[in-house]
Amino acid sequence: SSQSQGISSSSTSTMPNSSQSSHSSSGTLSSLETVSTQELYSIPEDQEPEDQEPEEPTPAPWARLWALQDGFANLECVNDNYWFGRDKSCEYCFDEPLLKRTDKYRTYSKKHFRIFREVGPKNSYIAYIEDHSGNGTFVNTELVGKGKRRPLNNNSEIALSLSRNKVFVFFDLTVDDQSVYPKALRDEYIMSKTLGSGACGEVKLAFERKTCKKVAIKIISKRKFAIGSAREADPALNVETEIEILKKLNHPCIIKIKNFFDAEDYYIVLELMEGGELFDKVVGNKRLKEATCKLYFYQMLLAVQYLHENGIIHRDLKPENVLLSSQEEDCLIKITDFGHSKILGETSLMRTLCGTPTYLAPEVLVSVGTAGYNRAVDCWSLGVILFICLSGYPPFSEHRTQVSLKDQITSGKYNFIPEVWAEVSEKALDLVKKLLVVDPKARFTTEEALRHPWLQDEDMKRKFQDLLSEENESTALPQVLAQPSTSRKRPREGEAEGAETTKRPAVCAAVL
Rank of each mutant, 00 (worst) to 15 (best):
G355D: 00
C354I: 10
F416D: 14
H308P: 10
W380D: 00
R443P: 03
L324E: 06
C331P: 02
E242A: 06
I417D: 01
L405T: 01
P394Q: 09
S325I: 13
Y359P: 01
L405F: 02
K413S: 00
A509V: 10
E363S: 02
P505S: 13
T358S: 14
K406I: 07
K286E: 10
C379Y: 12
Q456E: 10
K318G: 01
S485Y: 11
I245V: 15
Y373D: 04
G311T: 11
L249G: 06
L467H: 13
L405A: 00
E471V: 02
T475H: 03
I313N: 15
P357H: 03
K489V: 14
E426K: 10
E426Y: 12
A449F: 03
D466V: 04
D430S: 02
A371E: 05
F261H: 10
Q402K: 10
S487D: 06
I312L: 03
G276H: 09
E274G: 10
V438M: 06
V366C: 10
R488W: 09
A449D: 04
I409V: 13
R492S: 11
S367P: 11
L324I: 07
E271F: 09
A496D: 08
S381K: 00
S381G: 14
S325D: 03
H251Y: 08
P440T: 00
E447G: 10
E448L: 15
G276W: 02
K463L: 08
K461N: 11
S367L: 09
S469F: 13
V269H: 15
D316W: 00
K294P: 02
L301I: 06
S391I: 01
R287E: 15
P478T: 01
L353I: 10
D459G: 10
S391G: 03
L405I: 15
N415I: 06
W380P: 01
L295H: 13
Q305S: 03
L405P: 04
E363R: 02
C293S: 09
D265V: 14
Y306C: 06
Y359K: 02
F387S: 02
K433I: 02
K258H: 10
F338E: 00
G339V: 02
Y414I: 10
V377D: 06
D337M: 01
P484S: 09
R490G: 07
D330F: 14
Y359L: 04
K294M: 15
L317D: 00
F260N: 11
A442T: 08
E500L: 11
I257D: 14
K503S: 08
K342A: 00
K461R: 14
N310W: 00
M350W: 01
A376N: 15
V432W: 09
D265N: 12
K318Y: 04
L481M: 14
L450A: 10
V269I: 11
S325R: 08
K342R: 06
